[in-house]
């Protein structure tokens, strides 16, 4: 690991100021991607600014239309929460391993936007709103590409607001070594329609409109059984080809709908 200047932010404003003053600063939340990446020298930064001291970024609060999860809330806390949708708790309970879940955070995960991370599927699948120190961003506008989001320089996620689904389920085919999603599908019946979000398969989480309209008419695994996505542009690596992942999308979609009940 190349050395850096470690700084602890006392508030959001302090974090923004420290980030702005650094020549090449980065933010540290749970660190479960950042620290291993720094260790492997896949990244180096002049400054690492630790957000963990900002207490009001952590916690879960339910209100009428949904639930707001603070950006520094750990996966284990979401997994154990009775206030979040059951499918979201189950998704959080399947991230990594228990030690990762005891450190990793919602905000850190979606800011990183790993193509095989679980949380982006729930954020997009539930049509959540990502709240930052500057604005609120709809999930449909948040994930923009491979490790790319709509976040601007100096913009920090503060929380995510998830609307309450009528039904929701998540199914993933975990890579047996890393537990990352080879493919994960989040299917949700919301008040204003059905949403199906796919992670792991492509460079960025995406929705499948054909499955959404099929499920709107008939909420059952059978409704998506005959719908497949094109392998064009999907991820292909030593773990599986694009065609294999395209096939898994249909299988995981069926399982997600079945899990939702």
């Amino acid at each position: 690991m190349y050395n850096f200047n470690y700084q602890r932010a006392s508030s959001l404003d302090d974090a923004v100021a420290k980030l702005g003053a650094a020549s090449d600063g980065t933010l540290l939340a749970g660190g479960q991607t950042l620290i291993p990446t720094l260790k492997q020298r896949l990244a180096s930064h002049s400054d690492v600014i630790d957000l963990s001291g900002i207490g009001d970024l952590r916690g879960i609060s339910a209100d009428g239309g949904g639930v707001t999860v603070g950006a520094l809330t750990r996966h284990a806390e979401v997994a154990a929460s009775a206030d979040v949708p059951a499918a979201l708790a189950a998704l959080a309970d399947g991230i990594g391993d228990p030690q990762v879940r005891n450190c990793g955070t919602l905000g850190g995960s979606i800011a990183n936007a790993d193509p095989a991370a679980d949380y982006p599927a729930a954020v997009l699948g539930l049509g959540a709103t990502v709240n930052t120190n500057l604005r609120s961003i709809a999930a449909d506008d948040f994930f923009t590409g491979l490790f790319e989001t709509a976040l601007n320089d100096g913009e920090i996620i503060t929380s995510v607001t998830f609307p309450t689904p009528q039904k929701a389920g998540y199914a993933k085919f975990p890579n047996p070594a890393s537990r990352y999603a080879m493919v994960g599908v989040f299917a949700a019946q919301m008040g204003d329609g059905v949403r199906v979000a796919v992670t792991g398969a492509g460079p960025c989480v995406f929705r499948v409109a054909e499955m959404e309209s099929a499920l709107a008419g008939n909420w059952s695994a059978d409704a998506v059984a005959g719908i497949s996505v094109s392998a064009d542009g999907l991820n292909s690596d030593l773990h599986g080809s694009a065609e294999y992942r395209a096939h898994l999308v249909t299988v995981m979609a069926k399982r997600a709908v079945a899990a939702a009940g």
């Binding site: 602890r8 660190g31 620290i35 291993p36 963990s52 391993d97 228990p98 450190c103 070594a177």
Partner: peptide, 29 residues
Amino acid sequence: CDTSQCGACVVHVNGDSMKSCSMLALQAE
């Protein structure tokens, strides 16, 4: 390991198990 995968370094920090190889000493202040 050097890749945060093996768990041989697990300790408890404030009561929760964590990988001490995936955390800076300064984070445990």
